[in-house]
Design a protein around this nucleic acid. Structure first.
Lengths: 338, 338
DNA sequence: AAGCCTTTCCAAAACGTTTTGGACTGGCCT
DNA sequence: AGGCCAGTCCAAAACGTTTTGGAAAGGCTT
C-alpha cells in the first residue's frame, strides 16, 4: 500500500495542502516545516501518485509513439535507432514514452483516437509520413500537439524534422555516375510514402543531369524490408540476364533493402562493390558492419529522434519553437559496397 | 475541449451515474435509456478520460519496460524483436507499454521507483537478469507484479520465461566438435549477467565431454555489442598468430558479438565458415542475412516476449497462471558460418 | 390496503493530487 | 489602540471517472 500525501500529513499533524506545497517548494511554508516534511516524506517512502497528478494537472508528461509496422512481425533497426533517440531525450526531460505497434489501418486509427481523445498523452510523434496523411489532418483538426519525422505535403503549419531525401539520393546516384556507372537500377519504396517520391526524384534528377535516359525497367518496387530488397534484386537480375544490360549499380531507397539486395547479388555469385555497386539510404547501424560495408546516405536517425522529442516537449510546454521546420542535409557515406 | 460524462449527462438530462453505467453495460439501466446514451455519447464524440479511470480503478492497464542499454546509444536487434513481441501482445489485451531506456545504475533505479511507487504501471517486465538482481529483490519486496525474461538465482517464487542457455551453448559447441574442430574459442558475456554463466557452462560441458582440455586463453570477454565482438576477435587472432594454435571455431555468447567476430575474421583476410567457423546465440533477424549466414542457437525472442506479456497480464488481472516457470529448449540453427 | 418485489435511476463518496482563496498569528507602524 | 503587512498554514474545490447504497415508482401478491 503506497504512502500518500494524507499519510504524511497525518503523521506530521499538518494539512495535505502544506505537505504538498512543502514538497513542491512553495515559499509560503516555513523553512523548518519544509525540512520536517521533506525528511518525513523521504523516510516514509512517499512517492507521488503519478496518475492523480496527471488528472489534476490535465497533462501526463507522456509522449505517444505509434510504430507503423509493415507486418505482424516488425523488426527494423531504423525504429530501434529512432526509439533510442526519442527515449533518451524524453528521459532527459522527465517525460515517458508510450509505445504502440500497429499495422496501418483501422487498428492504428483506433490507437490514435484513444491516445488523443482519452488524453492519454500530451503529444505524439508521427513517422513514415504518408501522402495526404490522415494522421496529420486528424491531429491538426483536434489541435493536438505533434511533430513529424519527415516532411509532408498536407497543408498547414505543423512542425517537422527530416532530411532532404531528394538531395541525398541525388548525391548517391551522382556518386555512382562519377564512378563510371551508366546502368543504375533503383529499388523504390511504396509510393504512398512521402519520402518515396522525395528520394526517387533525386535519383531521376541525377540521371537527367548526366544525360542518362530513364529506363523504367531499371526501377523496381520494394517493401522496405530486407526480404523485399532481396526479392527486388533477384527480379532485377532475372530481368537483365545478359552481361551488357545488367545494371552495374543499385540505389536502394533504404538500407534494409540495400542489404537484402547485397545478399541476392552474392547469392548469384557476384561480387558486391566489384561486379555490382550497391548504395542505400539511412545509415542504420548494420550498414557499417555488413560485408562489404554499405555505401549509403547518412540520416542521423538518433539525433533526429532526439530533436523531434525536444521539439515536442517544447510544444506541449508552450515554449516558443526556434524553428518549426528543420530540413537537414544528408551526407553521403562511401564505403566498400559501391 | 474533450467531452466528459457530465456533458453527456447534461444533454440527456440524466445523472452521470446512469450515463456511466449505461456505457458500461450494466443491467440496471433501461434498454431505451441505454440506447439514448449510446447514440448521444457517440454523436458527441465522447471518449473516456483514461487518466481519471485509472485513478479511480487503481490500475493503469499499462506495463512498464525499462530497457537496460549498454551505452548512451543503444541499438540492439534483440530488444527490437522483444519489443515487438511485448507490444503486439499488449495491444491484443488492450494494454499499453511504457518504455524507458536507461543505463543500469542510479537512473535506472530511479526509473523503477517512479514506475512502482508512482503506480504508473500495473506490472513490469525485466530482462537481462543480473546475478543477485536488485530489481527482483525490490519488486518482490514491494509485491509488485513482474515477469522475467530469463532465469535468475535470486530466491523466491516469481515467474520467468527463458531458454536453457547451457543446453543451447552445449549444442553449438558439440556441433563444432562433431565437425572436427578441436580449438574452439568462446567470446563470453559480462559475468554479472545470469545468462553469461548459464551459457558458458554449456560450452565447457561440451568440451569436457569430448575430453578437450579447457584453455583459458581461448575464452575472452565481450560486451555484447557488435563492436565488442569485433574487438574480442581481433584480440583472439593476435593471441594466436601461428596457424596451428589459431582457433578454428568461435562460439559467441550472442549473435551481435558473433557478427562482430565475423567482420574481424574477414578483415584479417580469412574466410568465415572455411578457415574459421563462427556460431552465435539468439538468432536475431540479421543473423539469417549476414554473409555467410550465421549458425546460431535459436531463441524465439518474439514469442518469448509475447509469452512474457501474456503472463504479466494474467498476473495483474489475478488470473491463475498455468506455469510460473517456463524454460524452453533452444534449437541449433546450422547455417553457412560454421 | 399493506407489504413486497422489480425496475430504474441517482447523490455522494472515493481515487490522490494541486490550487484557490482565505484565516490566523505576531510584529511593526502610525 | 488600530491598522496593516508578512509569514504560515489550511479547508475546500477541482480533475473525470466508477461504485456504493439507497430512493422512487409501479406492479404484484396476499
Amino acid at each position: 500500500m503506497p504512502v500518500t500525501l494524507k499519510d504524511v500529513a497525518q503523521k506530521l499533524d499538518l494539512s495535505i495542502t502544506t505537505v504538498s506545497r512543502a514538497l513542491a517548494g512553495y515559499s509560503d511554508v516555513a523553512a523548518a516545516t519544509r525540512q520536517r516534511v521533506l525528511s518525513t516524506a523521504e523516510e516514509m517512502g512517499y512517492v507521488p501518485n503519478v496518475t492523480a497528478r496527471h488528472l489534476r494537472q490535465q497533462r501526463t508528461d507522456t509522449i505517444g509513439f505509434i510504430i507503423p509496422s509493415e507486418g505482424p512481425r516488425f523488426s527494423d533497426p531504423f525504429f530501434n535507432e529512432l526509439m533510442a533517440g526519442l527515449g533518451n531525450e524524453a528521459a532527459a526531460h522527465e517525460f515517458d514514452v508510450l509505445v504502440s505497434i500497429h499495422v496501418p489501418g483501422v487498428e492504428e486509427e483506433a490507437a490514435y483516437r484513444r491516445m488523443v481523445y482519452g488524453r492519454r498523452v500530451d503529444g505524439v510523434v508521427i513517422v513514415r509520413i504518408r501522402h495526404d496523411d490522415w494522421r496529420i489532418r486528424f491531429l491538426q483538426q483536434e489541435a493536438f500537439p505533434f511533430v513529424c519525422f519527415g516532411r509532408s505535403e498536407v497543408p498547414g503549419d505543423y512542425p517537422y524534422i527530416g532530411v532532404d531525401g531528394t538531395l541525398g539520393m541525388y548525391l548517391l546516384t551522382r556518386h555512382f555516375i562519377e564512378s563510371g556507372h551508366q546502368r543504375i537500377a533503383y529499388i523504390a519504396a511504396p509510393p504512398h510514402f512521402f519520402f518515396a517520391t522525395d528520394r526517387k526524384a533525386g535519383f531521376r534528377q541525377a540521371l537527367a543531369e548526366a544525360g542518362i535516359p530513364l529506363e523504367k525497367e531499371l526501377e523496381i518496387l520494394g517493401d522496405l524490408t530486407q526480404q523485399g530488397g532481396y526479392l527486388a534484386m533477384k527480379e532485377l537480375l532475372s530481368r537483365f540476364p545478359s552481361a551488357d544490360t545488367k545494371p552495374t549499380a543499385i540505389a536502394a531507397c533504404n538500407d534494409l533493402m540495400a542489404l537484402g539486395a547485397m545478399a541476392a547479388i552474392q547469392d548469384a555469385g557476384l561480387d558486391v562493390g566489384e561486379d555490382i555497386a550497391v548504395g542505400g539510404f539511412d545509415d542504420i547501424p548494420p550498414a557499417a558492419h555488413s560485408h562489404p560495408p554499405l555505401t549509403t546516405v547518412r540520416q542521423p536517425i538518433y539525433q533526429i529522434g532526439a530533436q523531434v522529442m525536444r521539439t515536442l516537449v517544447q510544444l506541449v510546454q508552450h515554449e516558443p519553437l526556434a524553428q518549426r521546420h528543420i530540413v537537414l542535409e544528408p551526407e553521403l557515406v562511401i564505403r566498400k559496397s559501391g
